[in-house]
Write a protein that binds this DNA or RNA. Sequence first.
DNA 1: TGCCAGGCATCTA
DNA 2: TAGATGCATGGC
Length: 286
Amino acid sequence: MLSAHATLPAKGMDLAATLFCGQTFSWHQNDDNYFYGMAGSRSLVVWQQEDTLFLAHPDGTLTPKDLAFWQHYFALDTDYEALHAKFTKHQKLAVCVSAFPGIRVLRQPFWDTLLSFIISQNNNISRITGIVGRLCQTFGQQLPGAQYMFPSAQALAQLTPEDLSPLRAGFRAKYLIDAARKVASGEVDETRLRSLNNNDARDELKLIYGVGDKVADCVLLFGLGRDDIAPMDVWMKRAMEQIFPKGMPKAAKGAEGIAQQYIFHWARQNLPAANAAAAKTKKQNK
DNA sequence: TGCCAGGCATCTA
DNA sequence: TAGATGCATGGC
């Protein structure tokens, strides 16, 4: 255990489940159950013992400002009892949330989240983590603890897709460059996005080449703190993994379809833009 | 070796 | 407007 550390009540949070459920790709776990990661311009070592989180600066001391940042990042100031009560109004969703009650929806920096979920498309968590790591290490500024922050939009906007070839991001490279150029120019602006309703914010994000409804909703949920965007996404995924730990057998596609229907049932009530996706899935399940 | 991966844009009918 | 297809790469 590092000597200079701060503690925070975990309030029922499951640190490992939260960091590796597919909402962030910027964390690594070592053999001693220490988790190393970064968000924005901050790096951190964090570990959990029972219902207490231990937080340490990798190379110094956590300031009160740092601690406030991480408390917000881990959503420790959110009333999850109330949030769970809201989510579990749907019977099947209640099963998913109760299967992983310790998952918290992280409040990640907007820019980190946008890049991460552009990379995530048609991809898997292991490889996403690798590409994110190479992006930060190759073009980002070094942080304490051998961590690297995401390159700024301004820095990335100066590059070409060919410059990103060491990342092995494939066809996503051109999407990353377009995102950087639109954010750097102000065509897509975080402050404006925060002032818009969900539908308008989604439309603005979709101005970026390579950003569709799925990526936009992930950015809204994880990067802009909109907890009314498909909040069961992370729980549903983990619950399905528990039901099918060795992967989804083809014969179980029906069950997956049922679970999806519950997602879309909720989404239809809350997201007009989800109607098209819901209709598409309904056809696929026929 | 072939399939799959949390998507998206583009083309075609 | 819906369906089909290509896009890059790595894990299994």
